[in-house]
């Protein structure tokens, strides 16, 4: 009892424990891998696989995470941060789409903007969104995800190779898989008499 009970640190520890399952990383990495599959197969319909990812993510939380570490609802501060994040993502997408359309149509510059400029704009937006996730959700590894997403988008401006999405996707997905396996090993299912 020599030190004061730090409730803020305790809340952060509890919060982070619910994000050590690697599911978010695998979800984001899989988005890029779907992009790779689309490029390799040449079928835009493959992009629809992205719609299955949120379902898999939610199922993973429900059937892998909650039975192992339990169910928790965090306080209003976390809810407020989530609302701010939704607003930031919405505003970023809206702003970028608006700028993209203005630049592409030449309304702002008098002539159509170079594709490189549009590519940079998209990369900045991607970085901003994932960095905001890292900041508002207290998940520092999202800064790395932000950098990989932005770099992959920038790289696609220089090359048409689908390998960009494959490499970027694996850079995010594989650490997520490692986190998930570690989470499963560290948090085995408890027998019914050990958990209620």
């Amino acid at each position: 009892m020599g030190s004061q009970l730090d409730l803020g640190a305790l809340e952060l520890k509890a919060w982070k424990s619910t994000h050590e399952d690697g599911l978010l990383d695998m979800f984001l990495g899989a988005m890029l891998l779907v992009g790779y599959l689309r490029d390799v197969t040449g079928k835009p319909a493959v992009t629809l696989l992205v719609l299955a990812l949120p379902v898999l993510f939610i199922a993973g939380k429900r059937f892998l995470t909650v039975p192992r570490i339990g169910l928790v609802k965090f306080g209003p501060r976390r809810e407020a941060r989530r609302t701010v994040l939704i607003f930031v993502i919405g505003a970023s997408v809206l702003l970028t789409v608006t700028l993209y359309l203005l630049l592409a149509s030449g309304v702002l510059t008098g002539s159509s903007a170079r594709p490189g400029l549009l590519n940079v704009l998209m990369s900045v937006m991607l970085f901003a969104i994932f960095a905001a996730m890292g900041r508002l959700l207290d998940l520092p590894r999202m800064y790395g995800v932000a950098a990989v997403f932005a770099a992959a988008n920038l790289a696609r401006g220089f090359t048409d190779s689908p390998l960009v999405h494959l490499v970027a996707g694996l850079v995010i997905f594989l650490p997520g898989l490692f986190l998930c396996l570690r989470f499963l090993r560290r948090n085995p299912l408890l027998r019914e008499e050990e958990a209620r």
């Binding site: 509890a14 339990g70 928790v72 965090f74």
Partner: peptide, 14 residues
């Protein structure tokens, strides 16, 4: 005190 509510398993793990 730092969460709104939690189940026994969560508190047990923490």
């Amino acid at each position: 005190a730092v969460v709104e509510r939690a189940d026994m398993l969560f508190v047990q793990r923490q």
